[in-house]
């Protein structure tokens, strides 16, 4: 049992990691078959994982209802919504103009859009509260942010055609330089963590730590 929990996953990670790494440099047919074989496996495993999700969801909310925990009414709604959606989907399919399609179109879509739309309010409020020029660097950031914000919508063009050009310059030069710095650092860190995982140095992700 200990072997299955500790050593075996590390060995599996090493073998699979090295195989996929070496495969990158082998153009032969076998290499391609291996690659698409593994990707198909991954698709199948991901599909099965949904079962865990459903079990966890139901277990969590049923527990809440059983214990009459605070806000258990929401759990009841979650379970009912879950069951009715499955039934509607199985009976009438999920295409447009079916009951499930109707729920998707007229309930799910507006609720989702509402959540996303709250961003506009949060951005306005956060900008008002937190976007302050407390230092010279912050002032430079503030000015750049304001120019990009106004220069990339039609009203910026209306005020001055140069605003848009300047906003594009900020996006394509200073912004990109910063992004590249972060992306390069992240890429190297990702390779390092991949090396650590393949060689079994980093195992916290398997549980049990070191």
């Amino acid at each position: 049992m200990q072997f299955l929990r500790k050593q075996f996953p590390v060995m599996l990670a090493f073998v699979m990691g090295m195989t996929m790494f070496i495969r990158e440099f082998v153009p032969a047919k076998f290499s391609e078959r291996l690659y698409y074989g593994f990707t198909n496996w991954a698709i199948v495993i991901t599909g099965f994982a949904a079962v865990f999700a459903i079990l966890s969801l139901l277990h969590h909310h049923m527990n809440k209802v059983r214990r009459r925990a605070q806000g258990y009414g929401y759990s009841v709604i979650t379970i009912l919504a879950f069951i009715q959606m499955i039934i509607l989907g199985l009976v009438f399919s999920v295409e447009p103009r079916t009951p499930a399609g109707w729920e998707y179109q007229w309930m799910f879509v507006p609720m989702q859009a509402t959540m996303f739309a709250t961003l506009a309010f949060f951005i306005a409020s956060a900008a008002f509260r937190a976007f302050r020029a407390r230092t010279w660097e912050a002032l430079a950031l503030l000015i750049a942010g304001l120019i990009v914000m106004i220069g990339r919508v039609p009203i910026g063009e209306y005020i001055s055609t140069h605003l848009g050009t300047f906003a594009d310059w900020i996006m394509n030069n200073p912004n990109m330089a910063g992004f590249r710095g972060i992306v390069l650092g992240v890429a190297l860190a990702q390779v390092a963590i991949a090396v650590r995982i393949i060689f079994g140095i980093e195992r916290t992700y398997m549980g049990g730590g070191d």
């Binding site: 951005i123 306005a124 900008a127 503030l142 914000m149 009203i155």
Partner: peptide, 9 residues
């Protein structure tokens, strides 16, 4: 909205 946030900041 952009103009509003601009003014707010």
């Amino acid at each position: 909205v952009h103009a509003l946030i601009f003014v707010a900041i």
